[in-house]
Design a protein around this nucleic acid. Sequence first.
DNA 1: GAGGAGATCGTCT
DNA 2: GACGATCTCCTCT
Length: 220
Amino acid sequence: MNVAPAQLTAAKLREAPRLSREFFNRDPVTVGRELLGKLLIRREGRQLLAGRVVETEAYLGQADPAAHAYGGRTTRNFVLFGPPGHAYVYFIYGNHFCLNVSCMPEGVAECVLFRALEPVCGVEAMARARGIQPSPSSSIAQLRIISSGPGRMSQALGITRERDNNKDLTSRASDLWLADDGFYPERVMATPRIGITKAVERPLRFAIVGNDYVSGKKIG
DNA sequence: GAGGAGATCGTCT
DNA sequence: GACGATCTCCTCT
C-alpha cells in the first residue's frame, strides 16, 4: 500500500547529528549503502528542506570506466580528488545538476551519487522549486516526481554547481548537510547502475527495497 | 503504463 | 564537434 512520506519537524532535523568526515572517509560501496535512510538537509533562509536518502550509486574513481574521475583530474572533477565529505555537483544534458559526495582520503577520487530522496520536510517548497503545485490530496505518483531522480532532487533542493560545488557537507557552517535521525531501512538491495554506458554490469546502485521514491521502476 | 525521442549546454578531445 | 551518471512529452497499446 502506498503511503505519504512521514514528515519531520525542523526541530527534529536540528537534533539529528550530522554525518562526520570519517563517515565519508571510506569506500563508496560502504558509504553508498550506509547513506540509505540518512537525511539530506538544505537550509533555505529560515526554512529547512529535507529528504531521506532512498537511492545512491557508487563510483570507484580512476578504476571505474563509468566514473568522471576515470580519465584523471580535470577542471570539472577536481573536487573528487580532494578530502572526503565534499559536494561534487556537475551539469549534464544541458538541463540537470547532479549531486555527489566525495569519499576516501584526499587523492582518491571515489564518490557516491545521490539518486533519489523521500521528501520529509518542506515538501511544498520542494514541489514549488520543481514547478509542481502540491495539495493535501496529491497522490504518491505526484509526490514522487519531486525528488525521484538525480536531476529532480537537485532541483527540489536548489542544488547548483555555482552554489554547492566543493561545499564541505560535514561543516557546521554549511547550508547543505547529511544527518542521522536513527532511521534504519529494513531491506536494501544492490542493482546495476542507471544511465551509464560503461561498466554497466556492476551492482553499484543501492536502494531501499519497496520505497515509493526510488527512481525508475519500483524495486520489491 | 511503457517506450521512444528530443531538448539543451558544459566539458572534453 | 561529439557526447552525456537526465527529464519530459508524446505516442502507442
